[in-house]
């Protein structure tokens, strides 16, 4: 079965909603092919035309930035990652052979920048969550804000999305990247495999583990999700 488009609409027995209705149709995942105009721009950029690369940035900066934003949940970090990704892309533009789509190639670079950045942060942490702040008359442990809605919170879609996003941010970086690519960027398994340069089977099994981890993180909010 091709993963490029998840086309099956026949629910299994345990996919019925609680009220017995059918689940929504599966999300369509369609890969964007490179247009002739984009190919021409890439060829020009590969010949050293930085004007063409400027045009490529215009075309792809929104996608790359939003991907980085979903990975980091921080606009400054996302901007830094997007910037580094395009600079790496510029330096490596001649290695793009057109075997993958340009978006796939850019997302691979962006993912690597993100993973490298997080690795650096782990090596050189800038803040400890249990850091003690000494005040003049007392000492207190820095309070880490708990964003989880209380039991009385109204379970709107917005709240559920925020809850999900917070849980996604708690996943290990590699799992987070996979969840973001599949569920938020709507990438197909095949494209994620190309981005991460691993077999499709590996993508599926790792994504399943990531979803199980996410389920455990959200177990406290099950009522929120069920509502």
């Amino acid at each position: 079965m091709s993963d490029a488009i998840r086309a099956s609409t026949q629910p299994n027995s345990f996919q019925l909603k609680a009220d017995g209705s059918q689940p929504d149709a599966p999300v369509q995942r369609v890969r964007k092919e490179l247009s002739p105009a984009d190919r021409a721009l890439i060829r020009r950029a590969q010949s050293g035309d930085t004007g063409a690369f400027n045009e490529l940035i215009k075309l792809y900066e929104r996608a790359v930035y939003n991907f980085a934003l979903r990975l980091t949940s921080d606009s400054d970090d996302a901007s830094d990652i997007a910037q580094d990704a395009f600079i790496r892309a510029f330096n490596a533009i001649n290695s793009f052979r057109g075997d993958a789509s340009f978006t796939t190639w850019l997302f691979r670079i962006t993912t690597n920048v993100f993973l490298d950045e997080r690795k650096k942060r782990r090596a050189h942490p800038t803040q400890s969550l249990d850091e003690i702040i000494t005040l003049s008359e007392s000492a207190l442990t820095r309070q880490v804000e708990d964003h989880a809605p209380g039991p009385e919170a109204i379970a709107t879609d917005k709240e559920r999305t925020a809850t999900l996003n917070r849980a996604i941010q708690k996943l290990p970086e590699y799992q987070r990247a996979m969840v973001v690519m599949y569920h938020l960027e709507q990438k197909a398994y095949e494209e994620i495999a190309e981005i991460l340069e691993v077999p499709i089977g590996t993508v599926k099994s790792r994504l399943n583990r990531a979803r199980l981890a996410l389920k455990d993180l959200l177990s406290a909010d099950r009522e929120l999700l069920d509502s």
Binding site: H183, L214, L225
Partner: peptide
């Protein structure tokens, strides 16, 4: 729980 989360993720 898993299926609910999966569907909401999508």
């Amino acid at each position: 729980t898993f299926a609910t989360m999966f569907q909401f993720l999508d």
